[in-house]
Design a protein around this nucleic acid. Structure first.
Lengths: 231, 231
DNA sequence: GTCTATAATGGGATAGAC
DNA sequence: GTCTATCCCATTATAGAC
């Protein structure tokens, strides 16, 4: 494959540093593979192979497998969190009935994620799937730590907004509602294909646009089921 | 426990096979470890170490790592599925308003699982967590196959019951509701600790008894949000 | 600073002892 | 039929070439 490397006149240091993008290629490959098979299901060889670089370059650029995993999360985390925070801010300006305002907050949590999954390019799609997988990991595996740091305080502001909107609800029930909502999102974004199988192919969990409004209505109804008062 | 087997006059092939329980010990250890770290996150050495048997015995008794994983699932799958089927049958005998009947079906899906998790002993707890982890695995990883086989047709009967109860709902919306419900359950049973962190320890996702009724009310409300008609 | 060659360990699986 | 000693390869990590 590397045939004809016979005559090499004098290429001094012509393309020294031909790897400004090596680290990015490794990150892209790691993001994609980790999101599909999890931290343990992917080896550095798999990642290096997909990125078409030497195995040990993963080590050179990131230090260890766990550090690489963290780097994958960190690359997009700031934008991810900031974007959700902005969506919440905007939702809080919505006027209307309590149901309308509740749905606005609910939608503000799922829509930025779905938007990035569907229209942010493959990298974002993989990143979101990876987030879902981290959130699903039982207990506090070492590698899941970065996710909690970036995310949990943002969730607090969503819950606070929903508490303000429902002073009549028991505080605990607001927590349960949002917890159930997050659980739905987490599972769905992991793209397990469950709906696809069980509906015999008639509906697809990857039809995220169609899903968002169903989900908003379902969760809003769930709040009513747990005691949210009338408009 | 089986102490005092001293005087055995003529034990021809008496304790040949002193390992009737070796396989069970391996299964128990595998069940526990797989449920915590997934298929890839556990090595046969880990399992053998936890079971206090030689590494290669896992191979002797089960043939391969993947076959062992299947064996773990298969051991309890029949009882698991049968128990859910019975719960559905019983729920369908409930009389009352449509909301009451809907909640009965919803409860019949989560309650048998929670019962086994909480009061079926550690083995069941680990098994349920393992089921959740399989359901969360993206796409069709090889090792996830057994789960789908055992489970999907059972889900069909739940969906059919809910369709019967809601002839006024669009068929697709019933699918979405049940899909959302399953997603919630799946994530929660994986025990991610998300609620525990985000509520500052005030509520625990491991308080399953407290959770069941919240969940039933939430999901029932979700059906209303997606167009289920009045009682 | 960037990459290649190589080490040291842990992985699943097997051949043969009892 | 049950278990032990061993194999070969994949894995992460490092030491040193450019």
């Amino acid at each position: 494959m590397t045939g004809a490397e016979a005559s090499l006149p004098a290429p001094p240091r012509i393309d020294r540093r031909r790897a400004p993008e090596t680290a990015a290629k490794i990150l892209d490959a790691a993001e994609s593979l980790f999101s599909l098979r999890g931290f343990y299901g992917v080896s550095l060889r798999d990642i290096a192979g997909a990125a078409k670089v030497q195995v040990a370059l993963t080590h050179y650029h990131f230090g260890s497998k766990e550090a690489l995993f963290r780097a994958v999360v960190d690359r997009r985390a700031d934008e991810h969190v900031r974007c959700l925070a902005e969506a919440l801010d905007q939702a809080l300006t919505v006027q209307g009935s309590r149901t309308e305002r509740r749905k606005a907050i609910i939608r503000a949590f799922i829509l930025p994620i779905v938007e990035r999954t569907m229209r942010g390019g493959p990298g974002w799609k993989h990143y979101i799937r990876l987030m879902a997988q981290i959130a699903n990991a039982p207990q506090q595996e070492d590698y899941t730590v970065p996710f909690g740091q970036h995310f949990d305080d943002l969730v607090q502001s969503y819950i606070a907004a929903l508490k303000d909107l429902h002073p009549d609800m028991e505080e605990g029930k607001v927590y349960w509602c949002f917890f159930f909502y997050q659980a739905m999102i987490t599972h769905i974004l992991a793209e397990s294909g469950m709906l696809d199988r069980q509906s015999g192919g008639r509906f697809h969990s990857s039809d995220l646009d169609a899903m968002v409004e169903q989900m908003v209505d379902f969760v809003s109804g769930g709040f009513l089921g747990l005691g949210a008062g009338p408009d």
